Amino acid sequence: MRPIRRVVIALGSNLGESLASLQGAVDAIADTPDVWVTGVSPVYETEPVDSPPEAQNYLNAVLLADTTLAANRLMDRALAVEDAYDRERSDVHNAPRTLDVDLIVVGDRRSDTDALRLPHPRAHERAFVLKPWYDLEPDAELPGHGPIAELLAKTGVEGLTLREDLTLDVE
Rank of each mutant, 00 (worst) to 15 (best):
P147T: 08
R89S: 14
L151F: 11
L69E: 01
A70L: 06
Y44I: 00
N57E: 06
E164S: 12
I29A: 05
E141C: 15
T32Q: 13
V157T: 12
L63W: 08
D50I: 05
L11A: 14
V7C: 00
I29V: 12
A65R: 01
P132K: 06
E150W: 03
I148K: 01
D91G: 11
L166W: 04
D76Y: 02
L69D: 01
N94R: 15
L152H: 00
E141D: 07
L160F: 01
R110W: 04
L63C: 04
N60Y: 09
E141Q: 10
R110C: 13
A61C: 07
H93Y: 15
P138Y: 14
E47N: 12
R97S: 09
D34E: 15
L99S: 04
A70V: 08
A28G: 13
D31L: 15
V81Q: 07
P42S: 14
P42M: 01
D86M: 13
R5Y: 07
D86C: 12
D27E: 13
L64N: 02
E150Q: 09
D102P: 11
V37N: 05
P48M: 06
T98H: 08
L63T: 05
D139R: 10
I29W: 04
S21D: 10
A123G: 07
D165I: 10
R109A: 09
D169I: 14
P147W: 04
E82R: 09
V105F: 04
A30G: 08
R2V: 07
T155E: 03
L19F: 05
L63D: 08
V157Q: 02
L166V: 09
P48Y: 01
V157I: 06
A153V: 00
R87W: 03
A28V: 12
E125M: 10
V8N: 01
D66N: 08
P3C: 06
R73S: 10
K131E: 07
